[in-house]
Write a protein that binds this DNA or RNA. Sequence first.
DNA 1: CTTGAGCCTGTATCTGCTACAGACCTTAGG
DNA 2: CCTAAGGTCTGTAGCAGATACAGGCTCAAG
Lengths: 138, 138
Amino acid sequence: MGKDHPSVKPMQRAALARATGCNLETIRYYETVGVMPDPPRDPNGYRSYGEDHVRRLRFVMRARDLGFSLEEIRGLLSLVDSHNQTCAEVKEIASAHLKDVQDKIVDLQRIERALSDTVAQCSGTEVPECPVLDALLD
Amino acid sequence: MGKDHPSVKPMQRAALARATGCNLETIRYYETVGVMPDPPRDPNGYRSYGEDHVRRLRFVMRARDLGFSLEEIRGLLSLVDSHNQTCAEVKEIASAHLKDVQDKIVDLQRIERALSDTVAQCSGTEVPECPVLDALLD
DNA sequence: CTTGAGCCTGTATCTGCTACAGACCTTAGG
DNA sequence: CCTAAGGTCTGTAGCAGATACAGGCTCAAG
């Protein structure tokens, strides 16, 4: 019973999209930009995906959810693929990204305060004077 | 003493860029997308800007700083330009944008927690086990 | 007159997708 | 068997919001 079966039947692009919730076209895009491998093809030229591809795509999607750029994801993946990544290397990428996120939060909070302060002064009535415009003008 | 002088000498594109801190090419871009007017031209075809343009560009830049999209800015400007804007209309645009900002802050804070929790588990050492990758993989 | 700087235009590049056109291939129904 | 509907293939265009660069003009100084 030598089974070298992939244990799951291969799927096409639409099936991978359904399995992961990823947009159909985005999958092809991820292949062209190198965060997904070029998949094997059926004799008719159709892409044939297996469980590996599902896991890989989920990794990419989760990392994108966390705001990693495709560039950063390529970095993480090359560490994974080389099999000689260290915790320190991965931590460096993730920490740098964490700092970006934290900086962005601070920026947005500053914007949020400025905007809500300004909006709070609005009468909301049908008058042509407007503190929002006054704030944006001089 | 009939003075119809613009009270300030006109300037060229680079001078407007310097006066506002805006990137030179971005000024032309703002003209093509309609948040800045097509300026009058000198006989040689050079753009000629006055104080109006400085104020307008500052308005656009401040609104961009606050995260308004160019589309939203076009909306605000058409209200300003029509001179029949009401506080209620402007408040509507600003409030909608404020909500976007607040939503984005919540999203980023969720990401920030997930990332910092994960990074905190890193040994940061030369070992191949990495909780960041474990979190992104299954 | 020459040289270099500044300006002009159109177009390319970037990120991260999304969508569409036109050509294949495959499958089900009649 | 033929046809029609649907899936897949490729290349390409489009979105925001800039930024950059190439190849021509023009202008002022030396």
